[in-house]
């Protein structure tokens, strides 16, 4: 608790003098993000780190206009917002009230970037944000993630994600030749296992405490954190011949990557490895 109090005051000092810290002591900020942002200040810190705070200040009122706008109704009942509405199930019990906000944020984004359109993978991202900040703030944070952190991930054809899949795979060659060889041999395209990891920034993969720690680093250092987490998971799941014994077929391997061992997803282990 003592440590937490200390961290909180350090973070408060940083947030109050943000520009100075960013200009002069970026390394220190990075280190503190790696140690984890105190929960009470996390939402604020994410907004500073992502630049969404500035973005909001430049666009005051724009969110309300977007959120109030009408979507052109799509034919049929299976329209996009069903996904958004169902997305709230991700939230821990007692947070059902966020559902309405989630809907507003996602709708606003769809109207803000009509050419891109809504992508279902954005719902869990927005849900995590809403648990840390009000709707308008969450909206601009989502904008930053979609445009600056993971540009192109949610647009048509998923080209950006396919490219990053190839990059992840070539990095794996260096990090864990055994895992690389195994996946090559079984002809498992990265898209088959990394889509959800990357598009949801691990929010649907990792336990909650790990999600938060990964996001702390992600907001500071960007997409490379997502790559590193992916590599750690692959290495510790498929990185030795012993582990591969039970992954003889393509399906078994995929299943293993879908149901990762809780041990390697655990906060302290994962953050240390990353």
């Amino acid at each position: 608790l003592e440590v937490l109090r200390q961290r909180e005051s350090k973070w408060l000092d940083m947030l109050n003098n943000w520009d100075k810290w960013m200009a002069k002591k970026h390394k220190k900020i990075r280190l503190r993000c790696q140690k984890g942002i105190p929960p009470s200040l996390r939402g604020r810190a994410w907004q500073y780190l992502s630049g969404s705070k500035v973005k909001l200040e430049q666009n005051i009122g724009k969110f309300d206009v977007s959120a109030a706008g009408d979507l052109v109704a799509r034919p049929g009942r299976g329209c996009w917002w069903r996904g958004a509405v169902l997305g709230w199930l991700l939230l821990p019990p007692g947070l059902g009230h966020l559902q309405q906000d989630l809907f507003r944020v996602l709708k606003a984004y769809t109207l803000y970037r009509p050419e891109e359109g809504y992508c279902q993978a954005q719902a869990p991202i927005a849900a995590v944000l809403l648990m840390h900040m009000p709707a308008e703030q969450a909206f601009w944070c989502l904008v930053q993630i979609c445009e600056k952190y993971l540009p192109g991930y949610y647009s048509e054809k998923l080209e950006a994600i396919q490219l990053d899949g190839q990059i992840l795979f070539s990095l794996l060659h260096k990090v864990s030749p055994v895992a690389y060889k195994h996946l090559s041999k079984q002809k498992i395209d990265p898209i088959l296992y990394m889509t959800e990891w990357f598009m949801c920034a691990f929010s649907r993969t990792l336990p909650w405490s790990s999600v938060l720690r990964v996001w702390d680093m992600f907001f500071c250092e960007g997409v490379k954190i997502i790559f590193r987490v992916g590599l750690v998971l692959l290495k510790h799941t498929l990185g030795s011949s012993d582990k591969l014994k039970s992954c003889q077929g393509q399906y078994e391997t995929m299943e293993r990557l879908r149901a990762l061992s809780p041990k390697i997803m655990q906060e302290t282990f994962l953050v240390q490895e990353v």
């Binding site: 996904g83 169902l86 997305g87 199930l89 991700l90 279902q120 993978a121 719902a123 898209i191 088959l192 296992y193 889509t195 959800e196 598009m199 949801c200 649907r204 399906y251 995929m254 299943e255 879908r258």
Partner: peptide
């Protein structure tokens, strides 16, 4: 059960 939209793929045997 109402399920969340699938991102990528999930598996059953």
């Amino acid at each position: 059960k109402e399920s969340l939209p699938t991102v990528g793929c999930s598996f059953f045997t």
